[in-house]
Computed example of a mutant assay.
Amino acid sequence: MAEALAHEHFDVLMMRWDGQDLCGVALMHRLRGRQANPPAMVLMLSADAPGAIGEGADALLTDPWSDASIEQAIADATAGRGVQGAAREQFGKLIFDRAACQVLVRGHPVLLTAKEFALALLFMRNAGQALSRDQIMTSVWGRGDQPGSRTLDAHVAQVRKRLALRPDQGWRLSSVYGFGYRLDKLEA
């Protein structure tokens, strides 16, 4: 199948990580090795998928799937490829440039790691809504929260610091005890 797909041109490939005829992870790696410009790849994960299985995917789609989550995964995978959707999103004075994986804060570029960028964008897109630790970990890391892990907390602290998500800047990124985090846009 990888050989047949290597000669085809398409923008997005969406596949299960554990496909019946061919493992989606293997197919993803084969296509990346055989095509100079492979399609954006969305890997569909079920609850029993190993933790780091989706590392090479452009976007992860976790079970249960909905129309909105599928659309979001495709938008994330194709960001910066000229396939669809804007490469920039603005939230107040913050401009997210998905192609460069950076945020403009009052016109000044702030470089973030890929995970910090995905985390910050998730918070912005869900401002005013409490997100559970499990929901955040699944969306950004492709796996649920692991008790005792401080990965999420460390990344949240970096995002808060680098993007100046403080009340004096019009934002409040706070923890929700026993649940997760919430980003609020404050009125001027």
Rank of each mutant, 00 (worst) to 15 (best):
N37G: 06
P38W: 09
P38D: 04
P38C: 08
P39T: 09
A40T: 02
A40P: 01
A40Y: 01
A40H: 03
A40V: 00
M41H: 02
M41I: 15
M41A: 02
M41S: 02
M41V: 12
V42R: 08
V42Q: 05
V42T: 01
V42D: 12
L43G: 01
L43C: 04
L43W: 00
L43Y: 01
M44V: 09
M44Q: 11
M44E: 12
M44P: 05
M44C: 09
L45N: 03
L45W: 03
L45R: 03
L45I: 06
L45Q: 04
S46G: 14
A47I: 00
D48L: 05
D48E: 08
A49T: 06
A49D: 09
A49S: 09
P50I: 07
P50C: 06
P50H: 07
P50W: 08
G51L: 15
G51D: 09
G51N: 03
A52I: 12
A52M: 15
A52K: 05
I53S: 09
I53P: 03
G54H: 11
G54Q: 04
G54I: 04
G54T: 06
G54Y: 03
G54L: 05
E55V: 12
E55A: 12
E55S: 06
E55T: 08
G56I: 00
G56E: 08
G56N: 10
A57P: 08
D58P: 10
D58F: 05
D58G: 07
D58R: 09
A59Y: 05
A59Q: 04
A59D: 01
L60R: 12
L60M: 14
L61E: 02
T62R: 14
T62C: 08
D63V: 10
D63C: 13
P64L: 04
P64W: 01
P64N: 08
P64K: 03
W65Y: 15
W65A: 13
S66N: 12
S66K: 14
S66A: 12
S66G: 15
D67H: 12
D67A: 15
A68F: 10
A68Y: 09
A68L: 14
S69K: 13
S69R: 15
S69V: 13
S69I: 07
I70L: 15
I70H: 12
I70Q: 14
E71I: 15
E71D: 15
E71R: 14
Q72C: 03
Q72I: 03
Q72P: 01
A73R: 06
A73E: 13
A73W: 13
I74L: 13
I74M: 13
I74G: 05
I74A: 11
A75V: 10
A75Q: 14
A75R: 15
D76P: 02
D76W: 05
A77Q: 11
A77G: 09
A77H: 12
A77V: 06
T78F: 00
T78H: 05
T78Q: 00
T78R: 00
A79S: 15
A79P: 13
A79E: 07
G80I: 03
G80S: 06
G80W: 05
G80A: 09
G80R: 08
G80F: 11
R81L: 14
G82D: 11
G82H: 11
G82Q: 07
G82A: 11
V83S: 02
V83N: 00
V83C: 06
V83L: 10
V83F: 06
Q84Y: 03
G85P: 10
G85R: 08
G85D: 07
G85Y: 01
A86W: 07
A86V: 02
A86R: 08
A87E: 15
A87P: 05
A87V: 13
R88V: 14
R88S: 07
